[in-house]
Amino acid sequence: MSKKHIYMISGMGADERVFRRLTFPEGYDVHYLPWINPLGNDEPIGEYAARLARRILHPNPVLLGLSFGGMMSIEIAKQLPVEKVIIVSSVKHKQELPPYYNGMARMLLRNLPDRLLFGNRQHIVRLFMQSGSEEEVQLLKDYMQKKDFRYMRWALATVLSWENEWVPPSMVHIHGSSDRPFPRRYVKPTHTIVKGGHFMVMNRAPEISRIIERELA
């Protein structure tokens, strides 16, 4: 039997290490799609997704996206056939974005200088990511050492202004009941991890892995 393929997209500015505690069913090869630089501050998410999708080398893959990577997985699924889309700690369409991700937030993002927007972000990131173990804290420290603020501004603006209304027919949405960036009261996932936070891909990995295995069986 020929192998199937899973392509993973991490959260905003993160890398493949956030997925390292997940396990996958036999018969699947796992690949990671790293983030690429946007073409300018206003590149539409659909055009960015099309460029990212060129790195997918196998037909009809499973897409697994975390947080902003979940939104990107949906945008890629608009442009090429996929077996299934699995999103974790993410949203499916614009109605699931919190109401405070609005025009005022976009205006602040546009007008705040880098030193104010990113200067003290460690406090906000730790609050939202709900990290616990030393391994998780170290990953966040590595993330916060990145200075590619151009990408971060583009990604934040893209999340705040996401206008998607299309949901893939083969959608699996795994969400934590205690998620802070995308509070559970605004989303309707297919699977809820009780007391799971935004970093549950690491600290609740066995439960998420079991859901993925059932969905891909």
Results as ranks from 00 to 15, higher is better:
residue 149 F to I: 03
residue 22 L to V: 00
residue 174 I to C: 05
residue 71 M to C: 13
residue 87 I to G: 01
residue 192 T to F: 11
residue 176 G to V: 04
residue 60 N to M: 02
residue 24 F to S: 00
residue 77 A to L: 08
residue 4 K to S: 10
residue 154 W to A: 09
residue 141 K to N: 11
residue 19 F to W: 05
residue 14 A to L: 14
residue 90 S to A: 13
residue 16 E to M: 12
residue 142 D to N: 03
residue 10 S to G: 12
residue 30 V to S: 00
residue 70 G to R: 09
residue 60 N to G: 01
residue 29 D to I: 01
residue 207 E to P: 04
residue 192 T to H: 09
residue 157 A to R: 13
residue 39 L to H: 06
residue 71 M to Q: 14
residue 142 D to R: 01
residue 121 R to M: 15
residue 170 S to G: 14
residue 82 V to Q: 00
residue 105 A to R: 07
residue 84 K to W: 05
residue 20 R to G: 00
residue 63 L to H: 07
residue 186 Y to R: 05
residue 189 P to N: 13
residue 130 Q to C: 05
residue 192 T to R: 07
residue 108 L to T: 06
residue 72 M to I: 12
residue 133 S to L: 05
residue 53 A to E: 02
residue 169 P to H: 07
residue 36 I to D: 06
residue 198 H to N: 05
residue 36 I to R: 12
residue 58 H to N: 03
residue 101 Y to M: 15
residue 43 E to V: 09
residue 159 V to I: 15
residue 22 L to Y: 00
residue 153 R to Y: 07
residue 95 Q to R: 12
residue 53 A to G: 08
residue 158 T to D: 06
residue 143 Y to R: 09
residue 142 D to P: 00
residue 148 D to A: 05
residue 120 N to I: 04
residue 22 L to T: 00
residue 32 Y to C: 02
residue 43 E to G: 09
residue 107 M to V: 10
residue 12 M to G: 10
residue 57 L to E: 01
residue 206 P to M: 07
residue 146 K to R: 12
residue 132 G to V: 08
residue 114 D to R: 04
residue 33 L to C: 01
residue 142 D to T: 00
residue 41 N to Y: 11
residue 114 D to H: 02
residue 170 S to F: 10
residue 145 Q to C: 09
residue 52 L to A: 08
residue 16 E to I: 09
residue 145 Q to Y: 04
residue 1 M to A: 04
